[in-house]
Design a protein around this nucleic acid. Structure first.
Ligand SMILES: [Zn+2]
Ligand SMILES: [Zn+2]
Ligand SMILES: [Zn+2]
Ligand SMILES: [Zn+2]
Lengths: 140, 140
DNA sequence: TACTTATTGAGAAAAACTTGCAATAAGGAT
DNA sequence: ATCCTTATTGCAAGTTTTTCTCAATAAGTA
């Protein structure tokens, strides 16, 4: 798998090491269409890496977050979930059913420019969760 | 205090009761210039309501959230914090120093309209935390 | 005052997350 | 191939955060 090699190299360049645990956790997140909690990652990873611990999952998710490979996000549950950090996007989250929809970054561009001008903040690389009611849940 | 009476009435109308605990928790949040964690609320409330428990703080914050009096928000720590639900606004949160800036809802209006048109979601009453770098932390 | 029941306190328990340290093993050097 | 350094893991214990149960309390109504 060339993707894994590429990742391994990028870690080694920075003095870190590639391990079966890290690879498995990345795989689980890549394979998942949606965000996973540490517990969910652990459940899936333990199938392929015998003996892996929750501790390692927590540590690895933090490690990967720090180095920009995954992204911790908040969907209102109070606990962070993680996803692979690929294209920039945001989420609409339904308050009622919890369903999520991804929206592209482009729509936010003008807002960002305005906010940056008004506040001096630098807002690149954001990942937002906007809460509301999905079309289905509005019919109630 | 007329504000408290008003609140009490609004609860009673819906079949709920006003209690010293609920009043104290509302007071703490009103008095605070910023968001408070359940633990912080508990710390302050225990001074004025002897015997109050953390359980009650958790329950009350959820109760007040459900009925639109307070708002749980996420600032990236992984744990929700709470604030009085007054005017609609959003936050810019500095990734580095944790500093926050409030921004008015008006700038978001056009984005919301676009998003609602594109997805069918209904996004009113939102409260966002946009992360980035504050002006001070950009000089590093 | 008495009655109904929403709400609380107490304690236990579950869930989420962290810490310290010895054992393991990844990657580079020999 | 083998050795070395040290990043990383597993293990076990501990801490923090949050939830649950249930009997006791007290808010609001009549
Ligand atoms: Zn996402
Ligand atoms: Zn929905
Ligand atoms: Zn706010
Ligand atoms: Zn800052």
């Amino acid at each position: 798998m060339s993707c894994a090699n590429h990742l391994a190299d990028s870690l080694r360049e920075r003095g870190f090491r590639m391990t079966p645990q890290r690879l498995a956790i990345m795989h689980v997140l890549y394979a998942s269409p949606k965000h996973l909690s540490p517990a969910q990652v652990f459940d899936q990873v333990r199938g392929t890496v015998p003996g892996v611990t929750e501790t390692t999952v927590y540590r690895t998710l933090e490690f990967l977050s720090e180095h920009g490979l995954v992204r911790p996000i908040h969907l209102g549950s109070g606990h962070p979930v993680y996803e692979i950090r690929e294209h920039d996007h945001h989420h609409l989250v339904c308050r009622d059913c919890g369903g999520t929809v991804e929206v592209e970054n482009s729509l936010f561009k003008t807002l960002y420019v305005q906010l940056e001008a008004a506040t001096g903040f630098q807002l690149a690389g954001n990942h937002l969760s906007l809460f509301g009611l999905c079309p289905d849940c509005q019919r109630e």
